[in-house]
């Protein structure tokens, strides 16, 4: 069988012990959460860590709690299946529940975690392959090589952020808590991303994601997630869009937001969506026209690259369709939009 490289595994029971191990390893360690992304990547020879620090046995890392102010605090090791099935998440953060329900297939949602999905490595058809395969084309910019096969002549890796939950969390205004030894910080998820496909996060590799906080949403919050993929199960997104509408007491749109994933290195919000939707009443022609305008904004701004398999042209053509359907689903309290 395809072999894992040799490494040492530590399974600390406390956060502190994990932070110590990571600090001691001085960059030679990697963190393993559910392992559903890291282990295939290790089998592909994409990393060769001396040490894996497992988060599986850290106390308090699993769970979904409602804070007094109505915010949700989700432990990073909470399985995606649990996020998807949580009535609390379904009620307060529907886009996140929907996105989590569409990650991979049933077994991988049992194993995969929300923290792991947020911290997912970027993906590319030229990168997520075995060592033999990558060697046969002379490697690529992201790993072991100097050439980009997506953008020929490109100097910047454009491997795709492929985490379904990222755009959902962005539309929910989530913040992420990171820790390393003697250092804590909280970062809005929207500020996490950098445009570098090799490492698309503005955090260091020895920083540990310790919690995902979803602030209390307005009573008029509506959210949905839509996903394009080849099959109805197992596959990573070819395009993922989360939509949020905030309705006022009359039911008119007060605020709105769309974020997309599986485009380029980082998940991307669409600018100007609130402006075109504000004041419209879902269910009216006026709202439908505004949704169409928002979909066209998405079409102009979100440009999938030939990084993940399949036609980039097609993925782009699906941007306005998915945007429209996801916004409409959010307005109706429905979703997920899947299959497209």
């Amino acid at each position: 069988m395809l072999r894992l490289p040799s490494f040492q595994l530590e399974e600390p029971k406390s956060l502190y012990a994990a932070l110590v191990l990571l600090a001691e390893a001085k960059g030679e360690a990697m963190v393993i959460a559910g392992g559903t992304d890291l282990l295939p990547n290790l089998k592909h020879g994409l990393f060769a860590p001396k040490l894996l620090v497992s988060l599986a046995r850290i106390e308090g890392f699993v769970g979904i709690e409602e804070e007094p102010d109505g915010a949700l605090l989700v432990g990073p090791m909470t399985p995606l299946a649990r996020v998807a099935e949580s009535e609390l998440v379904q009620a307060k953060a529907p886009a996140l529940a929907q996105a989590a329900s569409l990650v991979a297939g049933p077994q991988l949602r049992t194993q995969g975690t929300l923290g792991g999905n947020v911290m997912l490595d970027t993906r590319c058809q030229w990168y997520n392959q075995t060592h033999f395969w990558r060697q046969s084309l002379g490697y690529c910019l992201k790993k072991d090589g100097t050439a980009c096969h997506v953008v020929q002549g490109g100097k910047k890796c454009v491997a795709a952020a492929s985490n379904d939950t990222a755009p959902a969390l962005m539309t929910l205004g989530a913040t992420l808590r990171f820790e390393r030894l003697n250092e804590k910080r909280e970062l809005p998820i929207k500020s996490l991303w950098s445009p570098d496909g090799i490492w698309n996060k503005r955090c260091d590799k020895d920083e540990l994601l310790t919690a995902i906080r979803i602030p209390a949403q307005d009573p008029g919050h509506r959210g949905a997630y839509g996903k394009l993929r080849t099959r109805e199960s197992i596959d990573f997104p070819l395009l993922g869009l989360a939509a949020r509408l905030t309705l006022d007491h009359e039911g008119r749109v007060q605020d709105a937001e769309i974020s997309g994933v599986a485009l380029a290195a980082r998940p991307s919000p669409v600018r100007g969506v609130a402006d075109v939707l504000r004041g419209t009443l879902p269910g009216t022609a006026e709202f439908d026209e505004a949704v169409e305008a928002a979909a066209q904004l998405a079409y102009k701004q979100l440009r999938p690259l030939d990084n993940v398999p399949g036609s980039a042209w097609y993925r782009r053509e699906m941007v306005p369709v998915l945007a429209r359907r996801t916004l409409q689903a959010a307005a109706k309290g429905e979703g997920p939009v899947h299959p497209l």
Partner: peptide
Amino acid sequence: DKGDCGSCTVLFDGKPVLSCLTLAAS
């Protein structure tokens, strides 16, 4: 080899997981 087919599914406390993507120690 790597979590794409489900043939290695076992139950972990009654829930299905892929044993090819589970370290033995875990």
